[in-house]
Design a protein around this nucleic acid. Structure first.
Length: 283
DNA sequence: AACATAGGCAACCGCTCCGTT
DNA sequence: GAACGGAGCGGTTGCCTATGT
């Protein structure tokens, strides 16, 4: 099913955004709301592709975006979520208030995967490696790897990993349910008072009619939730349609969320539930 | 001080999903 | 059911900065 590119690339700006472009985009969205990305640039007076506008807004201009300073708690949560969900950055980001999928993806690739390797854990499978990989000192491969440019270096890196690990068959994982006509900010707030779409309002949340429940499944007439949908802000339970799923946004609440998550992981029963849920996502 | 290289991150690309016609 | 368009996602790239020699 071929399709035309999302926009004509002729005459469009690319590369880093200027403050002026940021302002134009922000003002337009403040006035007209998100969505209609394809037509937005023209209306906003931007010479940008709609996708580019969307990305810029989602990752940098949205309100309540946290930048940098990922806390150790967040680190740990990312690692645990990755072990459950794999590279499904948007889902992981959805559990971390104020964080974007792009930021988490970058952070994973540049920090966490290395750290895991150093700790003797395979960052892909989260299983123990035979022996921990020594932390690579800067430029320690100068003698071993005489690549002169970055991209070939990267390609080399990819090749070498491909040699180590058998190539995984491409599996198309199910996406989270999108029952929305309005894009929900993924910075931690989503609402699901009921699945019929009536929404509670939370301070700081966008006005939304959205139910975006990445970790819930319908099975045998029951609805099961994993994280973020029960009255503790975390996991589990069936027949829990009246879930309170407001993810906390404050520092303490993130801590609380994390503690509850750990608590959940401690119990074998819940671990099984988490595992089976994760499996259900992968099938 | 100058250069080479690795690290980090913003942005792009291509693909898939979903809703509409 | 097919075609199409909008939107979202994950992988990859390219540029700037930091650091080592």
């Amino acid at each position: 099913m071929g399709r035309a590119p999302c926009c004509s690339k002729v005459g469009l700006h690319r590369g880093p955004w200027t403050p002026r472009e940021d302002t134009l985009l922000t003002k337009y969205i403040q006035a007209h709301g998100e969505g209609h990305w394809r037509s937005l640039p023209k209306k906003a007076g931007l010479l940008r592709c709609g996708k580019s506008c969307r990305l810029r807004w989602m990752n940098y201009l949205r309100p309540n975006i946290k930048r940098g300073n990922i806390s150790p708690d967040e680190d740990d949560l990312i690692i645990r979520l990755h072990s459950l969900l794999g590279n499904r950055w948007s889902l992981i980001a959805g559990r971390l208030p104020g964080r974007t999928d792009n930021e988490i993806k970058n952070y994973w690739n540049t920090h966490l995967s290395k750290r895991l390797r150093c700790q003797g854990t395979d960052p892909h499978t989260h299983k123990k490696l035979m022996e921990p990989v020594q932390e690579l000192k800067r430029r320690n491969n100068k003698n071993n790897n005489n690549t002169t440019n970055r991209s070939s270096n990267r390609k080399q890196k990819n090749k070498s990993t491909a040699n180590v690990e058998p190539e995984k068959p491409k599996v198309h994982l199910p996406k989270p349910i999108r029952v929305t006509s309005f894009p929900l900010p993924r910075n931690g707030s989503f609402e699901c008072n009921t699945l019929s779409g009536s929404s509670g309002q939370e301070e700081g949340c966008f006005d939304s009619k959205v139910v975006d429940i990445p970790w819930c499944e319908f099975k045998d007439g029951k609805v099961s939730f994993l994280v973020g949908c029960d009255d503790q802000g975390l996991v589990s339970g069936s027949d829990n349609l009246e879930c309170q799923s407001h993810l906390p946004t404050g520092d303490n609440s993130l801590e609380k969320l994390y503690e509850e998550y750990l608590e959940l992981l401690k119990t074998e029963e819940n671990q099984v539930e988490l595992d089976s849920f994760a499996e259900s996502l992968l099938i």
